[in-house]
């Protein structure tokens, strides 16, 4: 089955669209190929661990400039006024929301799950694990990369 037709892929795509469209009022579209970051040192990424019923990690990465623009729009302030803490908080909260929606879409209704606390990074995006699932998306022509590391996600494809 093509990657894009799996339940895992669709669960994450729906979660991402719902999160970005509701929180940042931006449209998320799919890419057939990975869009390159203009400079890997200007990317912001944040990851969150998922515990029970599977162990895994979801990471989101996007250009820092795009995140700054979104932050300014969401807080209703000028780009120059965006603080580092607002920058980090917005992407962490979006990942938190996205990961929750993803798990809700993915696992059976009678199962619970737990999320860890988001962890930030700036600069080169970490390399994916060998069995990682990757979503190549874009917002306003800029790359939005989502990666799920862990063995358990694909078990829900059936």
């Amino acid at each position: 089955m093509p990657h894009q037709e799996t339940a895992t892929y669709k669960a994450m795509l729906d979660a991402t669209r719902q999160t970005f469209e509701n929180m940042a009022f931006v449209e998320v579209t799919e890419q057939s190929e990975e869009l390159a970051f203009e400079s890997p040192t200007h990317a912001t990424w944040v990851s969150i661990l998922i515990h029970d019923p599977l162990q895994g990690e979801v990471r989101i990465a996007l250009p820092s400039a795009l995140l700054t623009n979104m932050t300014a729009d969401m807080f209703g302030i000028e780009i120059e006024e965006v603080s580092e803490s607002q920058h980090q908080d917005i992407i962490a909260e979006m990942l938190n929301t996205l990961a929750g929606l993803f798990m809700t879409n993915l696992i059976p209704e009678d199962q619970t799950y737990q999320l860890g606390l988001p962890e930030h990074g700036e600069g080169p995006v970490p390399e994916n694990e060998e069995n990682a699932i990757v979503w190549n998306l874009q917002i306003e022509g800029e790359p939005l990369l989502i990666v799920a590391n862990g063995n358990g996600f694909s078990a829900y494809n059936n």
Binding site: G100, L101, I107, Q111, T112, Y113
Partner: peptide, 12 residues
Amino acid sequence: ITSAGNPAKEKE
């Protein structure tokens, strides 16, 4: 108001 909610958690 949570990102970690689903029907099972909601019930709890």
